[in-house]
């Protein structure tokens, strides 16, 4: 069995080595594919904080992914059409600057997570799953009917947004940005898990009574975790929209929420690198198996079934020989 930190290191090195190799071999598509994996991983790192540490099975994380996407789409749309964003009382210009877009994506999805968490955390278990799913569907149908920003057809952004000192249209440079943000989110999760907050949140997943009886409020702990979780997934959404230069209501779809849960489980729930491994496997399967057969989801389902039945720690649990969700 391999130590977890070696597995973690190998995964990160692999994730950065692959596009570098692809760059030298002129395999642009592989770079794009790896970027996609890094972005999905970032979204799932967000989910993992709620799901893995806090035990909140959110079936609505596509809300934050979509909000991040639309934050990018709307800001960039107004920038490319030179029309101000009209809020009634005041108007703001759009922007093509990635850091500004990321900030807006973070704030908007954190606020949405706060509202959704406030309402959803009054429930637990299957009801929590259902209410988060319901929020996801609300946003999905709202986006479909929002004609001003493309409605069902979505919104195309012609030129990728900019980042000072970088040419973001170069696939490898854009990958570098995504990878850096992924590493930042991983660092954040690692620090969180080791903090008093992480300790308390981790205990709140296991026993509400325990946390209450030492004078802490489990619902508030979970709410903050949900907000952090949503904010990270929101940034991933903004990157995803930038990768495709396109946003559409499918970013809000429940399938996406499900995929985030599935890839986190495959990688290893609650484990630091679980979402990264899960995203890499997911993208690989989607690409390779998807090229061979239209029914590749059958194989994804089979893998998921095997993991849920036999290897509860996911792939990372299998590699390290540790089942427990130690991050």
């Amino acid at each position: 069995m391999i130590g977890e930190r070696y597995v973690n290191g190998a995964v990160l090195i692999g994730l950065i080595a692959l596009p570098l190799w692809a760059l030298s071999a002129d395999e642009v598509f592989t770079i794009t594919l790896t970027t996609r994996a890094a972005i999905l991983a970032l979204a799932a790192v967000g989910l993992n904080i709620a799901l893995g540490i806090g035990g909140m099975v959110s079936f609505g994380h596509a809300v934050f992914f979509g909000l991040g996407g639309y934050a990018m789409g709307i800001l960039a749309f107004h920038a490319q059409t030179f029309s101000p964003l009209d809020f009634g009382l005041f108007a703001l210009p759009g922007t093509k600057s990635m850091p500004v877009i990321w900030l807006v994506a973070t704030v908007v999805s954190a606020f949405a997570a706060w509202i959704i968490g406030l309402l959803s955390l009054r429930t637990a278990g299957v009801y929590f799953i259902m209410i988060t799913l319901a929020f996801g569907q609300m946003f999905f149908y709202f986006a479909i009917s929002w004609g001003a920003y493309g409605g069902e057809d979505g919104l195309s952004i012609y030129v990728r947004n900019s980042f000072v000192g970088l040419d973001t249209l170069m696939p490898i440079q854009f990958f570098g940005l995504c990878f850096a943000l992924l590493c930042l989110a991983l660092l954040l999760q690692w620090r969180l898990r080791r903090s008093p907050f992480g300790l308390a949140l981790n205990a709140a997943r296991q026993s509400t009574e325990r946390v209450q009886s030492v004078g802490l409020n489990p619902r508030q702990l979970k709410l903050l975790a949900f907000v952090i979780s949503g904010a990270i997934t929101g940034v991933a959404g903004a990157l995803f929209a930038d990768l495709n230069r396109f946003v559409s209501p499918t970013m809000f779809s429940w399938q996406l929420s499900g995929e985030l849960i599935i890839l986190t489980i495959i990688g290893g729930v609650g484990r630091l690198m679980g979402p990264v491994i899960g995203a890499a496997i997911f993208i690989t399967l989607e690409h390779w198996l998807g090229g061979l057969t239209d029914f590749w989801h059958v194989w994804l389902g089979t893998i998921l079934l095997a993991i849920v039945l036999f290897w509860r720690g996911g792939v990372i649990g299998l590699l390290t020989g540790k089942e427990g969700p130690h991050v």
Partner: peptide, 28 residues
Amino acid sequence: AMEDTVFENVLLGAVGATSGAWALFRSV
């Protein structure tokens, strides 16, 4: 917290006693 160690469980009590659960980045 059954999945946690004995030490982590008492540490939670210590965190509760100092009501320091809102420290997000300090290593416990």
